[in-house]
Design a protein around this nucleic acid. Sequence first.
DNA 1: ACTTTCACG
DNA 2: ACGTACGTGAAAGTT
Length: 888
Amino acid sequence: MTKQEKTLLLVDGNSVAFRAFFALQNVSSFTNHAGLHTNAVYVFKKILDNILKKYSPANVLVAFDAGKTTFRTKKFTDYKGGRSKTPGELSEQFPYIKQLLVAYGIQNYELTDYEADDIIGTLSRQGEKAGYQVVVVTGDRDLTQLATEQTTVAITQKGFSEIEEYTPAHVQEKYGLVPKQIIDMKGLAGDNSDNYPGVTKVGEKTAIKLLKQYDSVEGVYEHIDEMKKSKMKEHLIEDRETAFLCKDLATIKTDAPLTIGLDDTKRQEADTEKLRTFYEELDLNSFLQELTGEDPTAQQDFTALDVTALTSENLADVPVPANQTVTFYLEMDGKNYHKAPFVGFVFEINGEYFASRDVELLQSKPLVEFLTQPEIKVDVFDSKRTIAGLNRLGITLTGIDFDLLLVSYLLNNTENSDDLGELAVVHGYRQVKSDEQFYGKGAKRAIPTDDDQLFAHLTHKVAAIAALKTELFQELADNEQEDLYWKMELPLAQVLAKMEIAGITVDTDRLEQMKSEFKERLAQIEQEIFNEAGEEFNINSPKQLGHILFEKLELPVIKKTKTGYSTAVSVLEKLRGMSPIIDNILAYRQLAKLQSTYIEGLLKVVFDTDQKVHTRYTQTLTATGRLSSVDPNLQNIPVRLEEGRKIRQAFVPSHPGWQIFSADYSQIELRVLAHISGDEHMQAAFREDRDIHANTAMQIFGLDSEDEVTPNIRRQAKAVNFGIVYGISDYGLSQNIGITRKQAKQFIETYFEKFPGVKKYMDEIVQHAREQGFVETIFHRRRYLPDINHKNFNLRSFAERTAMNSPIQGSAADIIKVAMINMDRQLTEKQMQSRMLLQVHDELIFEVPNEEMADFQKLVNQVMDSAVELAVPLKVECAHGKTWFNAK
DNA sequence: ACTTTCACG
DNA sequence: ACGTACGTGAAAGTT
């Protein structure tokens, strides 16, 4: 299409609105203050923006269906009959979608007795005659019949940013038909969604075959006598009338008696004022933000707060906190609070706000006092971040009362942003911007040089913390989560901060040594691969590698991804032996991973001040209650393969004469399952300290003694145990251990017969989730499962497995958190030098001086064993050595 | 910014 | 018939 040509955009309003509605159907938060649903409006607007941007049309029209009855229902009473009623949540949004269009300056139109399709069909032909390039946007494939050299039909896809464009060539490629034959196809095959039947037993495939031969419905019947005798022929003859009727129904009118013309579709300027009122009424804040842009005057919407700029001169003006509570916020420029530059701070005492960029003021008298005296309570946004930041100034923050981030995470970990502004909005508080809104993002991000602007933002943050305290504490109490907060998460934040600050020492020389060794080996393998491939290419590129393996070397395709051939390990393993290149690629992959992620990656994040890495544990991220570790991630350091495990040689104690000590909970998840399910057999196995996988093997294979359990049988039983913890499915298990689905199903059935308590737990927990909408750990940590009653099988099944797994994984996470808090307390009380360094889900890593080793060993066992009292004992396995590698 | 792959529990 | 194991983070390539 040449640039001079004008574009006419025709949108099927009903169809796109339907797509929009179902794209975000399960997001219950899409309602405005009056309870009106807004999901369809939201997505419709997104799609509209997308296509407007893509096609820059001079003329636009959105067509809607006029009502229930049309000329089609007169011909065929059941037309669209089987269709379930439009949900009320969607139909209430149609008037608003039209309002949106008006504000956008876009014509919308409907015509009695006709469907949106017919309006579009008619205008598209008028547009073509007037020399327009026409684009039709719809979710309905029927409209592809309109495609011509001048008209493209764009079908909206599942997500809302993608569309598939049907030109005549694309229709040909997809169906092997010309666009107008789509009508004939519908005539023969019918259309389920519009509820017209077509010819009995003829579906899309058969219809296409017939049309390739006979061109049209008419053609089929002209040649019907030539066809050899078949069931299909009988059906065709019998349903002749239906076929013609259906073709007629499927035909989109191109001559509807429109009362508007092309001139009326000219796009007008958007009315910003109208849009603003509209977004405000619907509480579509992100659009409101987009509309006002980075206009700093948007701040005017917020109630202005008086803030005193603090200097060394007026420190004495800071009052004594009357109610013994202060709200405090420390701003740093960047995520990594172990090194991010300080931006400033603000605090509120007795309703007065004080702010400054000079964080050293915090070290002076009245300020350091309220931060460090335990009887003065401090409310913050993120305890751990604040503790670690202040620690850099030599200040030990004590007396934390309310932590907005932590409480918010406990209440609902599905909407868990780590941005104060975003989180405040989740809880209905809007008088504060998100950092992205205020500072900008990417290259545009900047800290304002103007004090008033910066202090205003920080002050609004503090005000938000204070405003939400009472309400969120009340919700915590309602959920019976007070202990979880006070006895677990809040003290844990303190412990984690200490671990992060302590850091773990890295032997960079060892890493450098490995790096050059790996470099050589990689070069060697690379050369062999190039020789075997007969050319040089980027082995790290799945695309290029796929091309070499499956096109050039013509190896069989095992699996495809949505972008091309899969080259994952599971695939390569199946290709082993077919070409020597495979083994080399596997070796290359393994080494390259170690080199880039663990050797080079780790070296990049070692602090040059102390030769340590200081990871950050994300305490408010996972859906189950586990921690995660970033920058670097120390929870996925290689261990399974010997080659990778050597990376652990680089993790060493910070003092000579000390050792790395590892303590891990043995089978903690299965023990938790034995506890919460109350299953007698499983509990007995743990009480008698039996090999749990061998025990399972004996049960499901009906063996009498442990001697009969071969390694292979044990391996299968182990996979079954894992499967049970993950929320089992026959398919998943069969994939994992390479058996048929039927066999897997048999295993599971036998398992449930032998462990009826587990079966009962699985059924009950899913039922609980259906009724309550959430599941809980033994410490009342919640996980909400909005999809548990979803009509989509996959989403629902996923929610069901999650319901089974989360209480198990989450309770195990709770237990080790308790152990960490107790361990930290004991080390402090006993004034021991040993330090807790890392947590890897079911394992704690310490550094211990040799002279403390015996005492420490005793202590760690005692503390971890007694973290909680379960119906089965907890078991801890310990090891130590001169590096992490040797602690095995 | 998204996708693929792969490291861990 | 549907098409999956549960929970994470980092690197590299591609768009």
